[in-house]
């Protein structure tokens, strides 16, 4: 027992990963705020309506259309793009973990993490 403590590499890896995620979230939040400013400028004084579920238009549900319409400067699309980046941050964490486990020559956890990545991508795509 007790052979598998946090090694220094382990700890470094975790700190880098944690910071990476934080910057990812910060980056997403900036995009969301930018989108919010456009959106509120255009629709800030409209009545809000979220009581009934209508579903979102295609420009806010397809990855390709979100990307396209965000670059046309449409507020809601820009927000959605930021949200998409945010959803992607945990995937970056998995990718980073795979690299880390490979560097540590940890075959078992490389396999486990690749398996997690495949499940996540299945849900995403």
């Amino acid at each position: 027992m007790g052979k598998h403590r946090h090694t220094p590499e382990d700890k470094d890896l975790e700190i880098i990963m944690g910071n990476l995620l934080r910057y990812g979230v910060l980056f997403s939040a900036i995009i969301v705020v930018a989108g919010a400013l456009i959106f509120l400028k255009q629709h800030g004084f409209d009545q809000s309506q979220y009581t009934f579920f209508k579903g979102e238009p295609e420009r806010l549900t397809s990855y390709k259309r979100i990307w396209q319409t965000a670059f046309q400067g449409r507020g809601r699309s820009v927000i959605q793009l930021g949200l998409l980046f945010l959803i992607a941050t945990p995937i970056a964490r998995i990718l980073f973990s795979i690299v880390g486990f490979v560097l540590e020559k940890d075959l078992l956890y490389t396999i486990i993490t690749v398996a997690v990545l495949m499940v996540v991508l299945y849900g995403f795509l």
């Binding site: 995620l21 939040a29 969301v32 705020v33 989108g35 919010a36 959106f39 629709h43 809000s48 979220y50 579920f53 579903g55 979102e56 806010l60 549900t61 397809s62 507020g75 809601r76 699309s77 927000i79 959605q80 949200l83 998409l84 945010l86 959803i87 992607a88 941050t89 945990p90 995937i91 964490r93 998995i94 997690v116 499940v119 996540v120 849900g123 995403f124 795509l125």
Partner: peptide
């Protein structure tokens, strides 16, 4: 939690369950 939620969030976004006007204030 983040990884788990990302999987279902991807599915929900494509199903039209994620609204920017609502998600924006909540996320911030």
């Amino acid at each position: 939690i983040g990884v788990t939620a990302a999987v279902s969030a991807g599915i929900y976004l494509r199903e039209g369950y994620i609204d920017p006007g609502l998600s924006m204030p909540v996320v911030l």
